[in-house]
């Protein structure tokens, strides 16, 4: 097929309003009168349905909250507007949370795009590179004077998601599919997502932990990361360090004199 012909075919795949491209016939039999549009629709449907299936697989809780019909309709609109640029579909849908946030209907459920951001982060963490966490002994082994300049290397799967809504609590509740006490929707949650071994861990972060971990992700030395955390009231460095190692989020401790 020439480049012009594939231009036309490719355009028609995501635009059901366009007529079938020139040069196509419904079958290899010249006299065949099978309706061409119906044949083309098989390809159109497969392309879009595969993309929407991919999104549904990656955003199961978002789908449950919005209802499957609404989610698939929104997913379909997203897929037609933002088809994948990569052949590796496990990364498809990073743009869905922002797309959902732009929909008028979200004014009634403004927390949903943030839940989708959390699920997007979980999807990335699932396929991030493997690395073995180290215990807090790796930090304790350093002489006191080396602590300030030491660098904590975080697991490649670590991501932060901050929200004005209790996104981790909402996700857990929906995952279990159970009722429970009313969730305080005004209680925002900062969440760390990671996959220290094979399973995803989500941690609700205490005050100051988000800027602290963000600084560590930016390869700041420990003292500077601690300053970033301490800019928030109530930041507790020892507790944050203990929790970070406990979660399996640290894979190496690099003293300042060891090249990175």
């Amino acid at each position: 097929m020439s480049s012009d012909r594939s231009d036309e075919f490719a355009r028609a795949l995501l635009r059901p309003d366009l007529p079938a491209p020139d040069g196509l016939v419904a079958s290899r039999r010249p006299s065949d009168a099978n309706p061409l549009d119906q044949r083309l629709a098989v390809y159109r449907n497969t392309v879009v349905a595969s993309l929407v299936d991919t999104l549904e697989g990656r955003f199961p809780i978002t789908c449950r909250i919005l209802g499957r019909d609404f989610f698939r309709a929104a997913g379909c609109a997203f897929a037609m507007a933002h088809p994948p640029r990569s052949k590796v579909l496990m990364a498809y849908g990073d743009g869905l949370p922002a797309f959902l946030a732009g929909l008028d209907q979200m004014s009634r459920a403004p927390f949903v795009p943030d839940v989708a951001r959390l699920e997007a982060a979980i999807g990335r963490a699932l396929h991030a590179a493997d690395a073995d966490p180290v215990g807090i002994a790796a930090l304790a082994a350093l002489p006191d004077e080396a602590l300030n300049d030491a660098q904590l290397v975080l697991h490649p799967s670590v991501e932060l998601v901050a929200s004005h809504y209790p996104i981790a609590t909402i996700r857990e509740r929906e995952t279990r599919g159970e009722g429970g006490p009313k969730i305080d929707m005004a209680q925002g949650e900062d969440v760390m997502v990671l996959r220290p071994q094979l399973d995803i861990v989500t941690c609700r972060l205490p005050a100051g932990a988000h800027p602290f971990i963000e600084a560590l992700l930016g390869q700041a030395p420990l003292a500077r990361a601690a300053e970033a955390g301490a800019a928030r009231e109530g930041f507790d460095l020892p507790a944050n360090l203990a929790a970070l190692f406990e979660a399996g989020a640290v894979v190496d401790v690099i003293p300042a004199d060891r090249p990175t």
Partner: peptide, 8 residues
């Protein structure tokens, strides 16, 4: 086609 992937 032109960097768009159609999963079919």
């Amino acid at each position: 086609h032109e960097d768009v992937y159609f999963p079919d």
